[in-house]
Each structure stands twice: as structure tokens, then as C-alpha cells.
Design a protein around this nucleic acid. Structure first.
Lengths: 232, 232
DNA sequence: CGTCAGATTGATCTGTGTCAAACCCAGTGG
DNA sequence: CCACTGGGTTTGACACAGATCAATCTGACG
């Protein structure tokens, strides 16, 4: 029973969504969240798998997820991380295609599942939701474009620096500069787009250069300025 | 005068747009193309530059363009090619941000420029145009995601094969299998994400393996099946 | 013809990937 | 309480794809 009590209700979920998009009228939100459900996921759980049909999309109420594609040899490429308030799975609904990414939780998460037909209806009826979705898609598109260039042109070390900064920006730092979100070396490697061993070596480099400190999963950023320079 | 006569009018441009999105009502299209202008561009002309403000977006009536980002050392990374009927520049308008890409013509082109406020108005008023824009953004997003994985995980040769197939699919082949669109080696390299010399060597490999034939800019696909296998 | 951008080839260097082995540490169960 | 286990991490040795630099070649075009 405790669990059930601790789960947020739909109203709280719409609130989370409104944090991003202030001006959404409540009646449109009601349509969007029609039939939505809230569910808790443990760390490491699969939310959906690429190349499958999903009947709904997801709003991340709390926690962190990785959104990735799996290469031919089974290697994951993390496309982006999802944080509180992020929405995903909508592309597949809107395009009426199978998903092109898989999503897995990196921490315990609370997710709100929005039925696909509610999303489509909200887009069809209300211009505010439609505009919000355009905004989201265009934002992701811009980020994806930048990431294509980075991965094609920057060194692995520069990308690592960039990603550390990005994780800090998206999920925050503790008072001492430690990244709040902890990931395995393998996941970081899959995000940066490099082999785990290479990633570890580069982390050691950064340690030796006193730019970061790392014991286990706890990575502490010591010199953000230098990281920024490196990421150029 | 000849030129002026040969340019298509707005009506023809809306027609081009409708080829992609059949069900758009004419009154909404009228709003979208309110104040639109048609212009001819020569080969190699810059349409807009990244990190600038544009006041309009563009519909490519005919020709081919490259959409790219410039890295720190001036190296271009081609994100995608634009073909007849493609629309670009809308991201910047919708997000009210500077552009994140540059666009240059690869051939002579005819472009229709749609004022930003017309685009925004069409999105605000009409759900059909808004839905079309969501579709476009989501499609590009899916392609960008796939490209991130490819560039991160596949070998340069596999990506080259993939891109040759993509150019064939997007711009067509002549009867003898020659790519209709011809690009410089440098551009192909910038699309694949590799150095020009490496690209040339890989093209030679493909020639030796009788998978393609290449004299100058004319690249002829001899064995599409093998290309497909390579691109995996 | 001369010129110049683009294409090609060769030689060399290096960043990353790969494979293998060892290590650390938290949790489990005897 | 401690050996045992196994996932994650680290280090080393090595191979190779691809970048870089330099030189030459080609062909279109004025």
C-alpha cells in the first residue's frame, strides 16, 4: 500500500509537463492525459525496445533513463539521456512507425504513460499541444544535429568532456561537484561512442590532469573551465 | 526576361509541398505561403549560414542542397542532403533561435522562401500544417538518430556504402546506374564523416571489388546488393 | 596552352579498438 | 566469519583503421 500512496497522480504529472510548457490550457492537457497511468520502474528496467510498436508515449516524472539504439554487434549507442519532465516515444506514435530507439531506466523511475490516441487527439484538436510537440521535436532535432557533427569530428576526449558537462547540466552536481547521476563506465562509453577501455583510459587522463576525480561511480568535476576548453 | 518566365509561381510551389502532404486544405496552404517568394540560385551558393537569424524558411522546388555544420577547424559535416520538396530552416523559426546548420546548393536550384511569420501563423491557426510540421520534424529526428548510431559504430566503408545508396534513393539513378547527383569527393567525405583522401581510397576499393565504377564525378553503382551488405 | 581546383597515390603517424589478464568490491551462502 | 562469486573496473600489449602531410596527376576552361 505504501507504494501506491507514494505514486503521484495524473494531476501531478500534468504539472510536471507544465513546468516545461507554461501556457498550456488545462482543457487541452486533460485531453492529452486522458487515460494516462502512472507506474514505478526499478533501476535497469526496459521501458520499450527498438523496432517495436508502442501504443503510448511516456513522460518521465522522476529519475533518469537512457535512450539508445543497438548496433549490429549488440553495442548500444546512447542517443540521449532523459530526465525529469522529458517525454519520449512520441516519435513512433506520431509517425505511426515502430520505435527507432530503446529506453531503459538508469535509476528508479516514475513514469506516466500517455496513450497514443490521447496524444494524437490532443495534437489534432488543440494547437497548443501541437505547438509544444513541434517545439520538443525541433529541439531534439537541433541537439541531434550538433551531436552528429561532434561525433564525426571531435576526438573522443573532447566528446567525453562535453558529455560530462552535459550530465552535470541535466542532472546537477552535489555540493562538492560530484555528478548526481552515476552511470557505469560502459554506459558512459556507449554515450560517448567509444570502447569501455578507451573511456576508462581517458577518465584516468582527466584524473591525472586534476580535471576530475573518480572513485567508482562517483565522478567529481574539479575544473569545469578546463572541461569546457577540452570539449571544444 | 526568360529567367523570370521560367520560374515557377507560388501555386506551383504549394503543389510541390502537397506532393508530400496530400491532405492539406488550400486555405491553410494560402496562409503558409502568404508572402512567399521564388528565387533561383546557382550551384554552390550559400542559402543561409549557421548561427545566424533567418526570417524565413525554404522549400526546395528543384535541385539539391547540402545541410551542414562547420567544425572548429572549418571542416564541414554534412548532416543531410535536401531534395525537391524538402523544407528547411523551419527549426530556427519555430525555436526562435539562430540556425544550427548552413545550407548551400549542390546544383542550380529553385527555392521558395516562406516568411517566418507565415509559417508560425499557419502552425498557430491550422492543425493540418502543424501536423505536417510535426511529421517532418519527427521524420528528420528518426533519421538523425539512426545516423548518430551509424557514425559512431559503423566503419567508414560501411557508411560510404550506405550513403551511396541513400543518394541513389533520394536523387535517383540514370539508366546505366550512374548517380544522378554528382558531388565532389570532398563533399562526399564530409557527408560520410571522413578525410577526403580516405574517401578516395575507399572508392578505389569499391572499384577494385567491381561494386562501383567511377570516372570523375560520375559514380555508377554496379552491384547494389553488395553495397547493401557492406552497409550493414 | 597555362592554370587551377579537384582527384589520386604514397609514406607515415597515431588515436582507438581489441584481446587478455588481473583487480576490486559488494553481496551470498556455507 | 570468510571463502566464493560475478559484475564492473583497470591496466597492458598489440593491431589497425583512418588521419595527416606531401607530391603528383588530371581535366575543364579561359
Amino acid at each position: 500500500m505504501k507504494e501506491a500512496v507514494s505514486l503521484p497522480d495524473i494531476f501531478q504529472c500534468t504539472g510536471k509537463f507544465k513546468q516545461r510548457f507554461k501556457h498550456l490550457p488545462d482543457d487541452e492537457l486533460d485531453i492529452l492525459f486522458e487515460g494516462a497511468t502512472v507506474k514505478e520502474y526499478g533501476k535497469g528496467e526496459l521501458i520499450y525496445m527498438e523496432n517495436t510498436r508502442v501504443k503510448g508515449c511516456f513522460l518521465l516524472y522522476s529519475g533518469a533513463v537512457k535512450i539508445f539504439q543497438t548496433g549490429s554487434e549488440g553495442k548500444e549507442q546512447i542517443i540521449r539521456l532523459g530526465k525529469e519532465g522529458d517525454i519520449f516515444g512520441f516519435r513512433s506514435i506520431i509517425r505511426e512507425e515502430p520505435t527507432c530507439t530503446s529506453v531503459k531506466t538508469l535509476t528508479d523511475c516514475i513514469l506516466c504513460r500517455i496513450p497514443g490516441r490521447s496524444l494524437l487527439q490532443a495534437i489534432a484538436l488543440g494547437s497548443a499541444i501541437a505547438r509544444a510537440m513541434i517545439q520538443i521535436a525541433c529541439q531534439e532535432l537541433g541537439e541531434a544535429n550538433r551531436y552528429i557533427k561532434d561525433i564525426a569530428q571531435k576526438s573522443v576526449k573532447a566528446r567525453l568532456a562535453e558529455i560530462l558537462l552535459q550530465i552535470a547540466a541535466d542532472f546537477g552536481l552535489e555540493e562538492d561537484g560530484t555528478l548526481t547521476l552515476s552511470m557505469t563506465r560502459e554506459d558512459i562509453g556507449n554515450f560517448v561512442g567509444t570502447a569501455t577501455e578507451t573511456l576508462i583510459r581517458l577518465l584516468s587522463d582527466l584524473k591525472n590532469e586534476r580535471i576530475i576525480e573518480a572513485k567508482g561511480r562517483r565522478i567529481r568535476l574539479l575544473n569545469i573551465e578546463k572541461l569546457r576548453t577540452l570539449s571544444e
